[in-house]
């Protein structure tokens, strides 16, 4: 599926604008997140799972971003969803992409986002006893962590 066909398919299935620059990106509401992942993989042929992360937009809340690629036709797609202020729950992409497993664990570790239906949601990089989620903007760079103060 070419880039134009992908754009048209997304626009008709989800009724949202598809931005082209810098990479094609599409934003959906959180309740359609898993559906978007499934559509990208099965209908658009974006089977390559590149990464998943989040962005803390302070009072506007968290945004979850994932990148998937269609390697056969060389089409990249950024999937985005805004969780809303104060919301830290998002549906998981693990039923669709196995690569989402570690990426969502890292995202939970760094942002405290709970991915529903994730089979094994525990911290990825930090210690299990770590307090706080470092990539939140409210987490100061010099936050002390016991026993290192």
């Amino acid at each position: 599926m070419t880039a134009d066909e992908t754009r048209a398919a997304l626009a008709s299935a989800f009724g949202v604008d598809v931005t082209s620059a810098p990479v094609m990106s599409v934003t959906v509401s959180p309740d359609r997140w898993e559906e978007l992942g499934r559509f990208a993989k099965e209908t658009l042929g974006c089977r390559f799972f590149s990464f998943l992360t989040a962005v803390d937009w302070k009072e506007q809340g968290l945004e979850v971003v994932a990148k998937v690629d269609n390697l056969d036709d060389n089409v990249g797609l950024l999937l985005k969803t805004r969780l809303g202020p104060g919301v830290t729950i998002c549906s998981s992409l693990t039923p669709v992409y196995r690569g989402a497993n570690w990426m969502e664990r890292e995202c939970f570790d760094m942002f405290g986002i709970r991915f529903e239906n994730h089979p094994d949601l525990r911290r990825m990089l930090l210690d299990d006893a770590w307090e706080g989620h470092p990539l939140l903007k409210s987490y100061a760079v010099d936050t002390p962590h016991p026993p290192y103060r």
């Binding site: 089977r47 390559f48 799972f49 590149s50 990464f51 390697l71 992409y97 196995r98 690569g99």
Partner: peptide, 8 residues
Amino acid sequence: RELAEDVG
């Protein structure tokens, strides 16, 4: 191939 793409 399928696993390779799925995990990324």
